[in-house]
Every structure is written in C-alpha cells, then in structure tokens.
C-alpha cells in the first residue's frame, strides 16, 4: 500500500512494549508509596492502640510505661505553637507582601530585592537543627550579653506571676516558640508569595486606576483575594511546627516534666520531644507508648491538613 504500512510491525510492538513496561514500573513505584504509608500506619496503630486512652491524654509522663501520659507535652506544644503563630504569621505575610507587591524599578534596589529573595530560598534550605542552635544563642542566651538564664539582667514580675518575663529568655516557652518561628518563617513567606502571585494583575490595575496607593491596593484587593491561599500555606506551616522536634530538642532538651508551663519563661516539653524520649528508650513497652503518642500527634496533624484542604477547596473558584 504505502510506506507507513511497510514498516515491520515488530518495531512498532517493541516500542509499545517499552511503553507497557514503563507503565508496569510506574504502577510498582506508586504501589510502593501506598504500601509504605500503609505499613507505617499499620505498625504504629498495632503498637500504639493498647495505650491509647484517656489516661494517656490526661496524665503526665511516668517512669512506668503503663502509667505514662502525654498531657504536659500536649499543652507545651500548644503554647509554643501559639507563640510561633503569633510571631511568624505577621512577619511572614509582611515579607511576602514586600517581595511580591513592592518590586522596585531602580537597579540597585532591584538587586537588593533579588538578594532578599535568594536569602529566603536559602533560609528554607537551612536544616532545622541549625535553627535550634541559632535559637539557643539568640533567644535562650541572648548572645550571652544579658547575663545568664539563671541570673537575668532584667525581669518583669516574679516566676509566680503568669506574665513573668526575663532577659535572657532561658530554655522556656518563649525561646522554643520563637525558634519554631524561625523554622516555619521561610515556609510561610514562600507560600504567601505564591498566593499573592496567583491574584490576577487585573485586580491590581483596577484598584490603582481608581487612585489607590500601592498599600491601599494591597490592603483593599490583593490581600483579601490571597487570604485563602495564605491561610492554607500557614496551616501547613503550623503543622510542620507541631511536628518539628530537632530545634526544640536543642532548646529544651529532654527533660522530665510533669507540670504544664505557667508563664512564657517556664520549662516545657513538646509532643515530638516526648515521643523521641520514649522511642529512644530500649524497653519495648515504652515504644508502645511512643506509638500511642504518635497516634495523638498524627490525629492533630491530620485535622490541620484536613482544614487546609477544606479551605483550599472552598475557595477554589
């Protein structure tokens, strides 16, 4: 007939064989992902289900695995994450607005802008344990210029007051929360930038054409339109903060704490720390408690992620 038909069919089938083989490999890879997640969840549930009860949720840790609880760690996690959110969200969104909405035209400023942007990318890649060391020096000891945590140069109230503050902060809730803030700040900045970038330019032009200043434009149109995206990114960043252990480990250490923090300078422990403590013990029975703790932690994280997904879907129009 013609030349197309004269090609030997075997060449064709060889090429398609490759295609089918590749699909098989892909399916295998994807199946492996699902299998790993399945095994992970199954192993944690089988180990942890036994200790998962209200006793675990309502009690402090103990030397005996069957009596161990996670209550102070949960409260500690809530406190440091609150400090983290309160400090990281304004800073992060502010930086994102500066970078996205005030791109300078002047050459030197534009170069500076690019440098700040590169700096954020770099900060996002810094290992969290390095932020732990930074927090240790900058917040716990305040560069050792303000005396030592045991002998503060400045205090507000006494450790009995709920508003007790001191400089340097010491290994307390405030230092832990601020360190977490350093870890999640690049994440919040980058996701907020993406949310702002997704706002169509026509809205910006519309606002400017009405005689809005740049800031009025941001406040009146861009930011409201970007809020769902910013919220999604922030929630994901906060779930990272909840699960982050390494920097907190450096700030707080693994300490045996049976009480909940009473002020921002108070010692604390957090859920990932408590889990690490249990998991690193040799006894099998503590591993089971660790698994129970992981189940609680994962439940909280899944709630956060579900919230993020719901917000994303609600505003995805």
């Amino acid at each position: 007939m013609n030349e197309l038909a004269s090609h030997p069919p075997s060449a064709r089938s060889g090429r398609f064989l490759k295609d089918h083989l590749f699909v098989a490999v892909c399916l295998l890879a994807a199946g492996l992902c699902i299998a790993v997640l399945g095994v992970l969840l199954a192993s944690i549930i089988t180990q942890g289900i036994e200790h998962l009860d209200t006793h675990l949720l309502m009690n402090p840790p103990s030397r005996k695995p069957e009596k161990a609880g996670i209550y102070p760690a949960m409260i500690g996690t809530i406190y440091i994450c609150l400090v983290c959110a309160v400090s990281a969200i304004p800073l992060g969104v502010g930086t994102a607005i500066l970078l996205e909405e005030f791109k300078p035209r002047q050459k030197t400023l534009a170069r500076l802008h690019g440098f700040v942007q590169l700096n954020i990318t770099n900060l996002a890649g810094v290992p969290s344990v390095v932020y732990g060391i930074l927090g240790m020096t900058a917040f716990v000891e305040v560069f050792k210029v303000m005396g030592s945590p045991g002998d503060p140069v400045w205090t507000l109230g006494t450790p009995e007051n709920w508003y007790y503050l001191q400089l340097p902060f010491g290994r307390g809730v405030l230092a832990g929360g601020l360190t977490l803030m350093l870890v999640v700040l690049p994440i919040i900045i980058i996701s907020s930038q993406e949310a702002l970038r997704a706002v169509p330019n026509s809205l910006r032009q519309g606002a400017l054409a009405l005689g809005a200043t740049r800031l009025q434009m941001v406040w009146g149109t861009t930011l409201p339109a970007a809020v769902p995206g910013i919220m999604t990114g922030t929630i994901l960043a906060m779930s990272r903060a909840i699960g982050e252990a390494a920097p907190i480990l450096i700030i707080a250490g693994v300490v045996y704490i049976t009480f909940t923090p009473e002020h921002l300078m108070d010692d604390f422990t957090a859920m990932p720390l408590q889990i690490y403590d249990w998991a690193s013990r040799p006894q099998e029975s503590f591993h089971q408690v660790a698994a129970s703790g992981i189940m609680v932690l994962m439940a909280i994280l899944l709630t956060f992620n579900a919230a993020a997904v719901m917000i994303r879907q609600k505003f995805q129009r």
């Binding site: 790993v36 192993s43 994901l236 998991a279």
Partner: peptide
C-alpha cells in the same frame, strides 16, 4: 497519599525506622 506522607513529622519516621 503523598500529602499525608509529606505531613508526617520526622520523629515518626525515626520511630518507624527503629521499630519496623
């Protein structure tokens, strides 16, 4: 599945490595 995997804290992966 990937999103859930991405959201799992690293201490959990450590525990998984140790016990499984």
């Amino acid at each position: 599945v990937l999103e859930v995997l991405a959201g799992i804290p690293t201490v959990v992966f450590g525990f998984f490595a140790l016990t499984v």
